[in-house]
């Protein structure tokens, strides 16, 4: 196993966001975290990558606990994974190629020509070579996500964390991104942890799914997408996969 989350609990003041979260991610798999808006998916991801410190629990990544890691050990651990944020989070003052080459310049001893070549190669892998010299503001949402994936891959990470990669994208672009994730997983053996609530993406890319519940603030289901879809006795899971509104959310036609 490459990631192990143990007894993770998060609260913002009095408000409990996550309660006793336990799961593992296996090397090379695509794990998708799903759940309704506001159930704590992105919060869980941000705690997994060490952006925030949880009130309780541990997150082990390749044998190191990111919650307690400090200094150089933490810096080294951060290099094991790449993160793609919901907005792409490309640096607006740098070109796309410079964005991708930035971690190479900061963390490797590659000569400049090599950095440029690697950055361009990564952009070719994500199908974005023609946009290498453009500024992020000149790219569409899907292109920005692709560029962000290329940047996250720059240091050969073993794990990629993606927060809502399909958010705001049209179905064609979204499907292209799903195909890219599958390709990267297959070719480079990268482990993916993806937060999404896009049903098409879940079915297309997930090896395994964990579902968070906004009521209990914990994991209510775990398994393949097909296995979860079969759990029709659980109303929260059934509503999610069948896109059913909550009772009382629909306007009944008057008779």
């Amino acid at each position: 196993m490459i990631i192990s989350v143990k007894h993770l609990a998060v609260a913002y003041g009095e408000r409990q966001i996550l309660r006793d979260i336990n799961f593992e991610v296996h090397r090379g798999e695509v794990l998708v975290i799903i759940g309704r808006s506001g159930c704590g998916k992105s919060t869980l991801l941000k705690h997994m990558i060490g952006l925030f410190r949880p009130q309780q629990g541990e997150v082990w990544i390749e044998g190191e606990n990111i919650v307690s890691a400090e200094g150089d050990a933490r810096t080294q651990l951060l290099r094991h994974f790449g993160v793609v944020f919901q907005s792409g989070a490309l640096f607006g003052s740098l070109t796309v190629a410079e964005n991708v080459g930035l971690p190479l310049g900061e963390f490797t001893n590659l000569p400049e020509a090599a950095r440029n070549y690697v950055a361009l190669s990564l952009l070719k892998v994500v199908g974005l070579a023609e946009a290498a010299h453009r500024m992020p503001a000149e790219l569409s949402g899907g292109m920005q996500k692709r560029a962000a994936i290329a940047r996250a891959m720059a240091l050969d990470p073993h794990i990629l964390f993606l927060d809502e990669p399909s958010a705001g994208l049209d179905p064609v672009t979204s499907a292209g991104l799903d195909a890219l994730i599958q390709e990267l997983s297959r070719y480079f053996g990268i482990t993916f942890v993806i937060v999404t609530h896009e049903l098409y993406s879940i079915n297309a890319i997930a090896d395994r799914v964990i579902m968070l519940d906004e009521q209990t603030r914990s994991i209510i289901a775990e398994g393949s997408p097909a296995e979860l879809r079969r759990q029709t006795d659980n109303p929260a899971i059934r509503r999610f996969f069948n896109r059913e509104p909550l009772p009382g959310q629909t306007i009944q036609p008057s008779r």
Binding site: A97, L120, S121, K124, V125, A129, E130, A131, A132, H133, R134, E183, Y187, F188
Partner: peptide, 21 residues
């Protein structure tokens, strides 16, 4: 398998592409 991955790195360089130049 690596030969196939290497194929992903091939492609038109932006210097040759008028749109990206």
């Amino acid at each position: 398998e690596l030969e196939e991955i290497l194929r992903l790195h091939a492609g038109q360089d932006p210097e040759e592409d008028q749109t990206g130049q």
